[in-house]
Amino acid sequence: MKTLTTAFAIAALSTTFAASAADLQLHVFSHNNNATLTVTKDGQPVSGYPVSVQGASTLTTNGNLETAENGSVSVKNLSNQPQSVKFTVTDDNGNNIVAKRFLGRNS
């Protein structure tokens, strides 16, 4: 009985976390040396949301940014070498949501 109660408690906590984390989502579209990240909350684009972009120093955009009116941030790899880029946003509960993309070289 104790095992069953523990299992139900874990399932309830997992469902609660998934529901709250699902409110804020990252959508990343990348092609060649460009990437566009869009932040949505409850399916709607979020304007002015803080985004951390980490990767090569040769990106057109790097560091702490905010989303535009359409909820997006765009970056371009200006290096002649492919680069890995990490996008991070933090939800209302303090959880980091991370998306990583590999951007091709500037040709």
Rank of each mutant, 00 (worst) to 15 (best):
N93C: 08
N96L: 14
L65P: 00
T88Y: 00
L103G: 02
F102P: 00
I97W: 07
L59N: 00
F8V: 12
H31P: 01
N106Q: 15
I97G: 02
K76Y: 11
T15V: 06
G48E: 14
T60L: 06
D91M: 15
N77G: 12
T61G: 03
V39R: 09
N64S: 09
Q54A: 10
S72H: 07
T6L: 12
A56H: 01
S79F: 07
T16S: 10
M1C: 13
I97M: 13
T67K: 08
V39A: 07
D42K: 05
A22S: 14
K2N: 15
T61Y: 01
N106P: 03
Q44R: 15
Q81L: 02
K100F: 05
F87Q: 12
M1E: 11
R101Q: 13
V46K: 06
R105T: 08
Q44D: 10
G43I: 11
V75R: 07
T15A: 15
P50G: 11
D23W: 14
V89C: 06
Y49E: 01
V89E: 01
Q25Y: 01
G48S: 09
N34F: 12
A21Q: 10
Q83F: 00
F102H: 07
V39P: 05
L4S: 12
H31K: 15
V53P: 05
N34I: 09
L103Y: 13
D42M: 02
T60F: 01
A56Y: 00
A21G: 08
N93V: 04
V85C: 11
S72D: 11
L78V: 00
N70V: 08
A68D: 13
S107R: 01
S52M: 04
L65R: 09
K2Q: 15
A99S: 11
T90G: 03
L59W: 00
T15L: 12
S79Q: 06
V98S: 06
T88K: 08
I10K: 14
N34K: 04
N93M: 09
V46T: 05
V98L: 08
N32M: 13
I97A: 10
V51Q: 03
D42N: 11
P50H: 14
T38G: 03
A18I: 11
N95H: 04
F102A: 14
L59Q: 00
L59G: 07
G63C: 01
V73F: 02
V46I: 03
P45D: 03
Q83D: 07
D92C: 03
A68M: 09
K76H: 12
D23P: 01
D92I: 13
G48D: 05
E66D: 04
L59R: 00
A21D: 09
S107G: 10
G94W: 06
R105Y: 13
T15K: 12
A99N: 11
F8D: 10
H27R: 04
V98M: 08
V28M: 02
T88D: 02
A99E: 13
Q44T: 13
A56D: 02
P45N: 06
G55Q: 00
V53I: 15
V73I: 10
A99H: 12
V89A: 02
P45Y: 04
V39L: 10
G43A: 11
V89Y: 02
Q81Y: 00
T3Y: 06
S14L: 15
V46W: 05
G43D: 07
A12K: 09
S84I: 05
D92A: 15
N93W: 12
F29E: 08
L13N: 15
D23H: 15
L24D: 14
P82S: 09
N34R: 15
